[in-house]
Design a protein around this nucleic acid. Structure first.
Lengths: 214, 214
DNA sequence: TAAATTAATGACTCAGTGGTCATTAATTTA
DNA sequence: TAAATTAATGACCACTGAGTCATTAATTTA
């Protein structure tokens, strides 16, 4: 027997987040079914047995990955919306900026793709995500849109559906990065993408109040 | 031994498409890894052994599913673009209409989600899809945008990125339908969604030529 | 320092699935 | 009708990977 390459360390506190981080990376890359728990464990620097000390099952690990990721940002964005003064379009931009900084530029960026790919296999997790992330996110955008329509900054449109159209390109940007992006040659410029999206919205949502002023 | 419920039928011609149709449905629902070939076969009304008469492996079946689905529509859209006369925005609408009728309203609607979920596990298939569907689709939208910018119908923007922003909500609509849609209560109205998207684009892309005319 | 505790390990089990192939039977040919 | 062909079957094999547990060793307590 060889001596172990690295001596065992006992780090009860750090293990769970190290494991969920490793799981997130692999789930996003390979999908839930195709990810082996042995790989998750080894990526987190522990053995498979240790993983089971902290999570009851593969599914429990999946739930933990999702719950840990995005919730805090939703809460932050709710605070930003509550204290906002200024144009409604400015609010949309603020919400996007915060979300981008906390999700889009971090390891959590892979969660939307993961959630989309696995929603049907884990209805319970999908529902949690839907209620705590999607609904609350949509509500924030919806409130900004309604506020803008009330002042005439935006033109009147069916709000519930407009929310989805406004959010879609932002989600698609992340989903793309963790899927087809491997095929394209150059790096795509997220900053520019978001800028163009917001430019189209600025002009595309504009209502009579501003139009008459130009 | 019981007599077989349905007597064996030999239908060499029909099997492949029946099998790919069944595989598409299950791959979209469960993901590639989580789909059992036995289920695919039984959904297509044959035994697992028969499946292997027509496809060498699970991966070969996956490739067939993708290739069979969307290519024809890309070709159609290229024809539509070639013979188009009229405003560039009208062209965008024509392309969308055809695509929606042939993909969005058919069983092929699940392919974008499937492709997005599995791209990293099947780089070869992803590349095929990227080159034959995505690149050619993007080229069509790009040409319409450039045409519109040249005439002043659209304002000038960085084209390559604008293409992605324009397409994103349409892809997201399908991806949503095959993932999180199971969580929401009411049916979402695709017609309205696409209408709002195109309304935002009509106004959001508009360039000086039309703006001065208003 | 010795005993007790518990984090960590990895060999093992066992259910499930991709893939094979000898057999069966529908259909065609002689 | 008999022989030949080949579509279809499903029992079977090999292997994988989720989950278990007896053992090891780091750390704490006495």
């Amino acid at each position: 027997m060889l001596a172990p390459a690295t001596p065992r360390k006992r780090r009860k506190e750090a293990r769970p987040t190290e494991l969920t981080a490793a799981a997130l990376a692999l789930f996003v890359e390979k999908g839930f079914s195709a990810t082996r728990l042995e790989d998750v464990a080894s990526r987190a620097g522990v053995s498979k047995g240790t993983l089971y000390l902290y999570f009851d099952s593969k599914e429990a690990l999946f739930k933990a990955v999702i719950q840990e990721g995005i919730l805090p940002v939703v809460v932050e964005n709710e605070a930003i919306a509550a204290k906002h003064t200024g144009s409604s379009f400015d609010l949309l931009e603020k919400l996007l900026d915060n979300w981008w900084g906390k999700i889009g530029l971090t390891d959590f960026a892979g969660i939307p793709k993961l959630m989309v790919a696995e929603a049907r296999n884990f209805p319970e997790v999908a529902r949690f995500y839907y209620e705590n992330v999607i609904c609350r996110g949509r509500a924030l955008v919806g409130a900004a849109l309604e506020r803008g329509m009330a002042t005439g900054e935006f033109r009147r449109m069916e709000v519930e559906t407009t929310i989805d159209v406004v959010i879609a390109p932002i989600l698609m940007l992340l989903i793309w990065r963790f899927s087809m992006a491997c095929c394209q040659n150059g790096e795509s410029d997220s900053r520019l993408y978001l800028q163009i999206h917001m430019n189209i919205l600025r002009q595309g949502l504009r209502g009579s109040a501003l139009e008459s002023r130009v």
